[in-house]
Design a protein around this nucleic acid. Structure first.
Lengths: 349, 349
DNA sequence: CTGAAAGCGCTAACAC
DNA sequence: GTGTTAGCGCTTTCAG
């Protein structure tokens, strides 16, 4: 009992962190036994294992993930790449990914591309050798660059379909279908789509899906854009709308919708009386803006979680099951930004 | 030139990542020379160094940060702890920290405490041995737990003053002073402070500062709370306000202010005509809410950046200059949520 | 200026 | 079950 007192407890600090050898010496066993006691509890005498763990705790020993990662390649780290941490869209994805990672005993490296190729490549380069896999939630990398990365480490791409790389996307077609139906039901005959980034896979997908859905409902869709997927981009979009305002606007994402709505309101246009607005994603701000934004809600947190789960389960599996992309369901959340279409100003011919 | 063609370029992938030995062999030098060529370019013949680097690039060699961190302790990783990634308040801090880290060639480990001690401790435990320092931007740890952590690795705490640990705070007194002055100028004689988390250092600081400032201006301040520092918390706060509404409300942060404002508006109270509202931080949503929220703007991004700069510069410095906390300036941003005080309903006695 | 050799802390065969 | 022995990839004396 007395050695307990002077044993530096957990973080008594100062001196160097105890190593596996310190524990081994204290327990009177070989280092490999200590290692086993932590990694393969089954493979070691239950009572010694227990003693070792107790001693380790007393000494404040923690396995050094770097050191254990060297020989095994198992670093217990995952990287998450987003194009802009500041974008609330990513907040939920990060949360989902981080908590799934933490639950599995993994740590998350956050890479913020800051909307810049250069920054992204450099950070990725640095993180790559250290991680066991990566989630590309928002990336500027080309498909081929992504494929190269995927050859070095397991990769899961979000909201983008890259051949031969596992991906998790949203059910954009369904989202656009229910949006179109909702609008049609309200009497809208024509809708303007405010496009997001030109290079965005999701943007192309959404426009196409909206067009298809509209066709079946005998609605017309026109497009303005592309715009940066931000509130500022949305403000610009408002200026790009045709003089003769459409009765309904569907934006690539919530920020664009919010920006456009704000700009429109600033010039006296009423939402939803004059124009109905629909966003996509259901980020938090849709709830604090007035009127509340009708939007296609995406299970962002689940998406982040699913991404790391996929990464984790792919570990060891020889075949990186690169089947069809996994698709997550979305649903329309109707708030106050959509309403009955006003009578069209434009003469019917 | 011909060996250039079959040398696997950058990420041609497949085989294992090239090691320093592969480069050494290709260059016909010892591994130690390759190491020097990267780490201490001065200590090696300029032309061989150049040749080594070229070869390394051709082979797609990258130093493995884990391996190099083992013998040196320099892992090029920093950890950032936030209590809730989902909180826009942290978005800017993360951005600032991440970019400063990236510029210095560091990678950032993100730890989301999810408002839970347990989660935070566990994640911290895991990350600690791997990082060269940590920024505690939002933590539930006790002061003493923080001090213990600080003994193991350099730590910088944000928005909290922990004895013996470097910290970076905002100029709360000044923020509250200008807020009080602004309100006094508009004729408000009494203001209600909506308090944030009970345990928050910043909350106590703000309330105290507001009280002091108010005293000098002959204003009265009452307090309601504590509340969770979220929009939902703000909605609750609205219900806790005295029946006879104050003419001005100052909230611990923007989210609380926004939540309170929305709840008040929902029950027909006009902002700012009936009550003026002031927030703190100037997170993005203050700009999309109606009316725009008057708030004390904090240089969040700069704060994140300053934190990692402090960590980086403390490396190697023997004395972890644990002087007085660094304080960042704030300024009042006046938008539309504050206006002339309505005549007080309450009879003057 | 460069090579050889000894580890960093941990794991993984391989013996006993 | 447990100890021994090699390394993982890189850095760092220490010689030359």
């Amino acid at each position: 009992m007395s050695e307990r007192d002077d044993a530096p407890t957990a973080a008594t600090g100062g001196s160097k962190a105890p190593t596996i050898y310190d524990v081994a010496r204290a327990a009177g066993v070989a280092a490999s036994t200590v290692s086993r006691a932590f990694a393969r509890p089954g493979r070691v005498n239950a009572v010694t294992a227990e003693r070792i763990r107790r001693l380790a705790a007393e000494l404040g020993y923690r396995v050094n993930p770097l050191a254990s990662g060297l020989p095994t390649g198992r670093t217990s780290m995952l990287a998450l790449v987003v194009s802009d941490v500041t974008n609330p869209f990513y907040a939920e994805i990060i949360r989902g990914a981080e908590s799934a990672a933490a639950e599995a005993g993994f740590v998350l490296l956050l890479i913020d591309a800051q909307e810049s190729d250069r920054v992204e490549r450099a950070s990725l380069e640095r993180a790559l050798p250290a991680v066991e896999g990566l989630v590309l939630a928002g990336t500027r990398l080309s498909d081929s660059a992504i494929r190269m990365t995927a050859k070095q480490r397991p990769v899961v791409v979000l909201n983008r379909d890259v051949a031969d790389v596992p991906s998790i996307t949203l059910d954009n077609p369904h989202g656009m279908l229910v949006t179109a139906e909702h609008l049609a039901r309200l009497g809208h005959r024509t809708v303007t789509y405010v496009a997001g980034p030109a290079a965005s896979w999701a943007d192309g997908m959404r426009l196409r899906s909206l067009r298809e859905a509209a066709t079946g409902l005998d609605m017309r869709v026109q497009r303005v854009g592309p715009f940066a997927p931000t509130v500022a981009g949305g403000r610009e979009a408002a200026d790009a709308l045709p003089e003769d305002l459409p009765t309904a606007v569907v934006a690539y994402n919530d920020q664009l919708a919010i920006g456009a709505m704000l700009a429109l309101q600033a010039r006296g246009v009423r939402v939803p009386e004059d124009v109905s607005m629909v966003g996509f994603d259901d980020i938090f701000p849709t709830r604090i803006v007035r009127p509340g934004l009708t939007t296609v809600a995406a299970p962002l947190r689940a998406q982040g979680r699913a991404a790391v789960d996929a990464l984790l389960s792919s570990r060891g599996n020889p075949a990186p099951r690169t089947g069809k992309p996994m698709t997550l369901p979305v649903k329309l959340v109707v708030r106050d930004s959509t309403a009955q279409a006003r009578r069209t100003r434009r003469p019917s011919s």
